[in-house]
């Protein structure tokens, strides 16, 4: 009897795994991808990824056309699940990245953001750069705690042309409809000290944005020339 109940619970847990898709809702992501000089990049893969705290699933993907334009359409969900758009992360057909351009993820796209945009988000122009062009330098970002007023750092975004970068669609947005209570998640993941090295394109100005534990947003700019740069920020 107990075995039967356990088996049923196990079967139920298997059934409940995965994203609960809502086929009647169709979400559209579109935009344009160019290289560092503004020339359109064809055949760059773009994917929409759901993550509900346990399960990751690619809901839709496509490629840029000869003009660098992309449009992917994918189903919504019946639960509050954030969406990330993945730029040039994978060639989903071959499971490897077949070009040498940088990659980018844009996240914090919640269901309420989708509805606010009437189910269609235009990302306008997204720039990548060729990592083979000897056009990269390092940007070292350190954020150090000096004040006892703040408990820590919630998140950091490097806004500019960088490789393997993650940025928020709306940095200031603290979503109330995200899985597992976003605010609690933020509180649990506070950084006291932040330190990371980014690979970035030369000759650009990068904006460093960070959110502290009181949800205040701060930003600073750093110019990237021909040499690697280290920037230390205190709070």
């Amino acid at each position: 009897m107990n075995k039967t109940i356990l088996l049923l619970i196990f079967a139920f847990s298997l059934c409940s795994c995965g994203i609960d898709y809502d086929g009647k809702t169709k979400i559209i992501f579109e935009g344009n991808i160019t290289d560092y000089n503004g020339s359109p990049l064809p055949n760059i893969t773009v994917g929409a990824k759901y993550y509900n705290g346990n399960i990751t699933d690619i809901a839709g993907f496509g490629e840029t056309d000869s003009n660098g334009n992309f449009r992917i359409i994918f189903p919504g969900t019946n639960e509050n699940v954030d969406i990330n758009i993945l730029i040039n992360h994978l060639d989903y057909m071959n499971n490897y990245n077949k070009n040498s351009y940088s990659t980018l993820s844009i996240g914090n796209i919640t269901q309420s953001v989708i509805r606010a945009h009437d189910y269609k988000i235009n990302f306008s122009t997204i720039q990548l750069y060729d990592l083979n062009d000897d056009n990269s330098v390092n940007l070292r970002v350190n954020i150090n705690k000096t004040s006892s007023y703040y408990d820590g750092i919630i998140k950091v975004n490097i806004i500019g042309i960088a490789d393997d970068n993650y940025i928020d669609y709306d940095f200031d947005n603290i979503p109330s409809d995200s899985p597992s209570n976003y605010n609690a998640q933020y509180d649990a993941n506070l950084y006291y000290e932040y330190s990371r090295t980014y690979l970035v394109a030369k000759n650009q100005t990068i904006k460093i944005k960070y959110m502290l534990s009181d949800y205040s947003v701060h930003e600073t700019e750093v110019y990237i020339g021909e040499e690697s740069v280290e920037r230390t920020i205190t709070y």
Partner: peptide, 14 residues
């Protein structure tokens, strides 16, 4: 005719 929530531009398409 299917129930659809999407951008008006794509209502008929889906």
């Amino acid at each position: 005719f299917l129930r659809t929530n999407t951008h008006p531009e794509y209502k008929d398409f889906f």
